[in-house]
Design a binder for these strands. Structure first.
Lengths: 189, 189
DNA sequence: AACACAAACTAACACTTGTTAGTTTATTTG
DNA sequence: CAAATAAACTAACAAGTGTTAGTTTGTGTT
């Protein structure tokens, strides 16, 4: 595809603005102005505002699905799998912070692609949950409510997009290690 | 004030819609339709769409500020204070889930009241952080990065509005206790 | 009966929205 | 040079936006 480069510039610019104000509050004129062109010119490269959102969110969701599948099918124990899930989130978020903001906050505006997105998300969470339950069964993990464990971890991981840009001194590896320690070992001495 | 009741109905209805689609995607006509009246009628009770958002967010932010002040000045040890912060979030969120969605996702649209909101939030986080640092100093808490600890806890607590409505079987007390265990003791057996 | 008032209404406004059509400009390719 | 193509432009649209003005309706109080 020839226009792929310019199209990607639009998507990147849009994602940055979507992160700041949300999908609905950003206009096509906002995106165009940010790029130094007119709104109508955007349509030489993209078909609609919706399509921009879809491109941002679906590719990320598929990346997570793929990563989770790999981890689930690996032969590590449950706690190591959880650490790898943490690393997966840190890596993806580190590569595309603005996109993660849209994934978290604007998925409900996907319209035609909403069902597909929800399918991926439900599948992701079901696999995540089953890894935790395996850990409880094998006595690696305390007898705690597995859903609350997943909720705690996912909440933290889904918020990474807010914190990573504010802490540029922390590298991705250190952050992943710190999070593993805190989430798995707790903070009590 | 006499019209306080009707005004509160508008705010409650708006908060519910804001939770589903976000502030910017909800129109005054949406809110009115949900209440079975016309958009113009809303203006007998409120001054602007902005004002609705302000009423939702600022009152919650002040509630958190007040609760945090109480906990900070109490004579409990650091870990107990952290448990109380968890309970504070569970209680407030349990009482107003839709409002918490706006607080988390739509604060950037506060405009005139944005600076005041940010002041409250910065103050809240600074106090939170100092409680964690005290715990590290007094050796109650492991030598971990205090900011990452706060980030982990706050991410989880700020996401409660998403999970509480889905788990009506869990009562507030159980949830707070479970979260305290997981966040403070960890999940490793 | 007369009045006050909360709360709804209709109609309209000025502006913003996403998007389309048709055209121009500059660069690359044959 | 000629042709093709990428990428910008101007102008305009139909629909939707928050909001205002002025009016009507119903209910309770003097």
């Amino acid at each position: 595809m020839k226009t792929e480069t310019r199209k990607n510039e639009i998507i990147t610019t849009a994602a940055k603005l979507f992160k700041e104000k949300g999908f609905s509050a950003v206009t096509m004129r906002d995106i165009a102005t940010e790029m130094g062109i007119k709104a109508a010119s955007l349509y030489n490269h993209i078909n609609s505002k919706q399509e921009i959102l879809k491109e941002i969110i679906i590719s990320l969701a598929e990346e997570f699905t793929q990563g989770m599948e790999l981890i689930y099918n690996s032969k590590y124990n449950s706690l190591d799998k959880l650490s790898q899930i943490i690393a997966l989130h840190v890596t993806i978020t580190n590569n595309n912070t603005p996109g993660m903001a849209s994934l978290n906050n604007d998925w409900m505006h996907l319209e035609e692609h909403l069902n597909y997105y929800l399918k991926l998300r439900n599948n992701y969470e079901a696999t995540f949950l089953s890894i935790i339950k395996e850990g409880v069964s094998s006595s690696e993990i305390k007898k705690v409510n597995p859903e609350i464990v997943m909720f705690t971890m996912l909440s933290t991981l889904r918020s990474l997009y807010l914190w990573i840009p504010k802490k540029e001194d922390l590298n991705a590896n250190d952050l992943a290690n710190n999070l593993s320690t805190i989430l798995i070992q707790g903070i009590n001495k």
